[in-house]
């Protein structure tokens, strides 16, 4: 088996977890830190939002490294689905498949049906423009952007960096992530999709 073939298989969760820590370590070593959502604020500061809102008035050039980092992630995403593409879609548990199918979302069973990253019923170019899907994508994105800045971080900053550094504020934030996530996954999203 070649190295490319080896890396192209879906990674075990322990390997993935360790690899994320490597990224966090490298960022710290080079003088940065692991926190992706700051980029959303930096993009606004760069675009001149600081002219009428002091929250965006800071030296965004000092955060340029983070924007470069996240641009790299775009390229990484491309490489991972081309050179390192998995031979099969994501293997989702039967219980989740049954639940999703009951609210109109099918989990891809073959790579021809999809990689198993996003549901075609919501994200495909043909389906994304329906009223319901625009509401889901734009409403969801808005909540992520508003919530992450309010909480001072997202999964990388709080759930990984913050919990690793034994920060109680991050624990509270992660509890919040789950209150919101559970409410959405169990009640609101099924209601929205069935609507």
């Amino acid at each position: 088996m070649s190295l490319i073939e080896f890396l192209s298989q879906p990674w075990h969760w322990s390997i993935s977890g360790a690899a994320i820590v490597l990224v966090m370590f490298l960022l710290l070593l080079f003088g940065g830190e692991f926190g992706v959502s700051s980029n959303l604020r930096t993009i606004l500061a760069m675009g001149g939002a600081g002219n009428h809102c002091s929250f965006f008035e800071y030296d965004w050039k000092k955060q340029l490294w983070n924007l470069v980092f996240i641009s790299g992630a775009v390229v990484g995403g491309y490489i991972a689905v081309t050179i390192l593409a998995s031979p099969e879609p994501v293997q989702i548990s039967m219980a989740t498949q049954t639940h999703l199918s009951s609210i109109g979302i099918q989990v891809p069973q073959t790579i021809a049906e999809g990689r198993g990253f996003v549901p075609a019923e919501i994200f495909s170019p043909e389906n994304m423009w329906s009223f319901k899907n625009i509401l889901l994508l734009i409403g969801g994105g808005f909540l992520v952007g508003f919530g992450t800045r309010y909480a001072g971080g997202c999964t990388s900053g709080h759930a990984i960096s913050g919990l690793s550094n034994l920060q109680i504020p991050s624990l509270i934030a992660v509890i919040g992530f789950f209150i919101g996530g559970l409410l959405m996954a169990w009640i609101l999203l099924p209601a929205l999709l069935k609507f």
Partner: peptide, 12 residues
């Protein structure tokens, strides 16, 4: 803030 983020995370 975390709860709002979690709602969006599970939604998108």
């Amino acid at each position: 803030g975390g709860t709002i983020f979690g709602l969006g995370w599970a939604m998108t």
